[in-house]
Design a protein around this nucleic acid. Structure first.
Lengths: 231, 231
DNA sequence: CGTGCTTTTGAATAGTATCAAGGCCGGTGG
DNA sequence: CCACCGGCCTTGATACTATTCAAAAGCACG
């Protein structure tokens, strides 16, 4: 198996070696600086994006401009894919740090799908995982109170963006408002809950960086919701 | 293209005629009476289900037994698919009316995927649509107040289960509690909102059947959320 | 004609969102 | 070097919304 731009987790690696070659030649890879749009809500769908390196948030805004983050994406993800078969993107994507992202046009992607059943199958599995996560998230947000939501959000961020999954201590660099948009509340509420967690010595805040001291203890605070694992 | 058990919308029809034949021979089709489990949360994953006829709700319950409906499924849907690659179902499925459902074992399904790229592709598109809908739902439920959520729920039910999409009047047979579980609140709140809508002559209730008199007017009440269409 | 379930509605309670003021920090320019 | 500015964070007070509980009415069923 080829390793696409040194990212073995990239789904494109499920294509045959010849097709990996074809896609490498016929795709466009860009460096997107932190905070930049990869694609915007409402713009025309031309293809799909594969994250080779970096972190991205998938957002959706209402008329008043209020943003809701519907998903966090890392190196194992593809983007813009929920729009396949649609004319316009129903969501937008913004980088959370400098990211290298590969763009593939729809017709090339379609040819690759038809020629590589395993690739298509793995993309389908990726979808199914994301759908399950999304459904569980919907359920969690419906049942939880604010404190529980914030904890869920911290765990979600840590799970998506923490390299060393076994560590009990994790740093989070998102702002209060970005966290609020993930869990569907506002920055004030997040701040309150974080203050409360600080009093219990479960987290520390150092210059806007949130340090989770004991991630396992946070997890145990949600064990009323056994399904929350993997949201 | 073959028509699988007189359901042209069934995704299996994207397989080659030979494979439709193979699947028909090697799958199991059952009639599930109303209110019966198709599969239960936590049970072992053996394969996937295709709805040939009927309506199903996909649910997920917490420790206290409180149920949350994560998705409504009709004749165009497959079920149990979000569990592909997992050991146990993260959700359960219950019929909302008498339904004919076809079960296909994992290994046969996998063979079919490898042999029929178009089938795999269409299943992938199905996933992508459901994921987009799920993400939009998450966003809606995060931003809306109770009245708006109830309206969204009514429209969601109407869109999923109403045959004649062009009609302005739709009947809904679900109970208050079932509606509440779809939008993440309780039966009391649904009842309040329905009473309020009745006062405005937007709906009628006849023996527990909710009759939407003017679905377009209900839609317009959510046009603060343009993305709500297709939740 | 009861019995049990769902629906409806009011009142009390709990929880959440909003607003506003002040603090902290980094960056900019005098 | 210091004063100022703007952004983000924190926290209290307040208003609002949603949840819960309870009671009564309506309907379905045997």
């Amino acid at each position: 198996m080829h390793s696409w731009f040194n990212n073995p987790a990239c789904l494109i690696n499920y294509c045959s070696p010849e097709w990996v070659e074809i896609i490498q030649q016929r795709s466009i890879t860009h460096l997107y600086p932190k905070g930049q749009y990869v694609f915007m809500e409402g713009s025309l769908v031309m293809g799909a994006y594969f994250i080779l390196k970096g972190k991205v948030k998938v957002i959706s805004s209402d008329q008043t401009g209020k943003e809701q983050t519907v998903r966090l994406a890392n190196e194992e993800h593809m983007l813009g894919h929920t729009a396949i078969g649609l004319e316009k993107y129903s969501v937008g994507a913004i980088t959370l740090e400098d990211s290298i992202i590969c763009f593939i046009e729809n017709n090339i992607l379609y040819e690759a799908f038809m020629a590589n059943p395993k690739f298509t199958f793995e993309v389908m599995l990726f979808y199914s995982r994301e759908l399950r996560k999304s459904e569980l998230r919907t359920k969690c947000l419906a049942l939880m109170n604010n404190e529980e939501k914030v904890i869920l959000g911290l765990l979600y961020i840590a799970d998506t963006y923490n390299q060393e999954k076994t560590k009990n201590q994790v740093e989070i660099i998102l702002s209060r408002q970005e966290i609020a948009q993930i869990i569907g509340t506002n920055a004030d509420q997040v701040s309150r809950v974080l203050s409360s967690l600080k009093k219990d010595y479960l987290i520390e805040t150092r210059e806007r960086t949130i340090v989770i001291k004991n991630i396992n203890h946070l997890r145990s605070m949600l064990n009323k919701y056994p399904f929350a694992t993997g949201c």
